[in-house]
Design a binder for these strands. Structure first.
Lengths: 234, 234
DNA sequence: AGCTATTGTAACAATACTGTAAAACCCGCC
DNA sequence: GGCGGGTTTTACAGTATTGTTACAATAGCT
């Protein structure tokens, strides 16, 4: 689902800003304040990228980076520092950091660098990053690859199926009227009279519901539309 | 084999220094002074990394970068510029550059960034560094020699076959629409209506697929185009 | 329970879009 | 001019996907 970032930063002001903005961009962010905590986490959790301040209480960022490298030689690390000395940048990059930014830096540039690093890392760390799958029930849907893994095996998805699923995923938990669905998926006038929509719903249920006659995820709200929910019916 | 770098830089002073130092480090460097020359070279030679000045006579570095990206989505590009405006950096990174340095920069830092980029790119660009042949399934394709070794023996490749394969290899894993393929391989308008493309796909499958009727590498994505992947279907 | 608007379902029709083979074409060469 | 390799066009078959129709089932209401 969301890429998972580890932010190691002891200055609360900076940390709050970065966490906020990274989450805004759709990342899952774990924030710790010391190198020790960071290493513990890296040891037993999965991260897609580490953002590492160099000046930390306790063990230094450089040392953390070194240890991370020894543990996972490909985990992308972006270093941050308040010091703008050339030697610091060189030490950072030589230690194995994949990028290095000097504070104060532009937030936009930082975001672009994070995204760029994630984009490339997806090419060599399969199962990381964006285009990941959406899970519910015993299904796993990958919109980018246009396929799904269901209880009954792998399944290719058609273009309209993908569009319908995307619409539902984006509005999980909300009730979508027929008109809204027709507009979002088909681009049709909201008053079109057709059973196509129903047919697609049927298909979704056939694909993804354990018991299509008692849907748990693709719910009908009579007179109001449909609602998708990831956890069972309620 | 040495990594091959393309340096695009019109200021002779800077260029000489960089060429000298890069060669010192064991890289093979090709130096050109304009974006046009750069694009010509990228079109028919293999490079492992491009170092691109933004301020060029003729078409700008940004534009060059954009075109390179469209042509080879993974070729690493490092941008250089004399301008230190934040907006420039953002534009560069947003255009698809993988890194961005502002002149004057430290030579050591520059080298570390080049090496870092190359180190990571080896993980996702096959054909880089070592041999020049591209392997998938039980095939081995050599674009330079215009020939391939398949399960059914050696096979000479025609010009267009090479161009199609190159396009697929450079965009491995991406879905290429008919329009994109027509543009990249044939230079045709994107709305051309022709079955030529299909015929070539058929040929690729006949050459390289164990069972051409169940393609594992050259996949059809109905309504969206084709996708090449080295590892079996997925 | 009976009525009605709405939704579910299946079969089928209509549309793309893609695969394939053969014929036509083009171009350099003898 | 005829030949041969390679490419493009033509023509059509094959299929996947989407849309329509007709009707059954159901929920909500009185």
């Amino acid at each position: 689902m969301k890429p998972h970032l580890l932010l190691v930063e002891d200055e609360p002001g900076i940390a709050r800003g970065l966490v906020f903005n990274l989450e805004e961009e759709g990342f899952k962010v774990t924030h710790v304040e010391t190198g020790e905590e960071a290493l513990d986490l890296v040891w037993d959790e999965h991260f897609d990228l580490v953002i590492l301040d160099v000046m930390l209480p306790g063990i230094s960022g450089l040392e953390v980076c070194q240890k991370i490298r020894r543990h996972d030689s490909r985990l992308p690390v972006i270093m941050l520092t308040a010091r703008s000395e050339e030697q610091d940048r060189i030490d950072g990059l030589a230690t194995g950091a994949d990028d290095y930014l000097t504070k104060p830096f532009s937030l936009d540039e930082f975001m672009l660098r994070v995204k760029g690093m994630l984009r490339r890392s997806e090419w060599y760390r399969p199962g990381s990053g964006l285009g990941r799958s959406y899970r519910f029930g015993s299904n796993e849907v990958n919109l980018k690859e246009q396929k799904a893994m269901t209880a009954r095996g792998e399944l290719p998805l058609t273009e309209l199926e993908v569009r319908m699923l995307r619409t539902f995923f984006r509005h999980e938990g909300e009730t979508l009227s027929r008109a809204e669905l027709l507009a979002a998926v088909w681009g049709m006038a909201p008053d079109t009279e057709t059973r196509t929509l129903d047919n697609f719903i049927v298909r979704m249920r056939k694909y993804f519901e354990a018991d299509p006659s008692k849907p748990a995820h693709f719910l009908t709200l009579r007179g109001r539309g449909y609602r998708f929910s990831r956890r069972g019916s309620q």
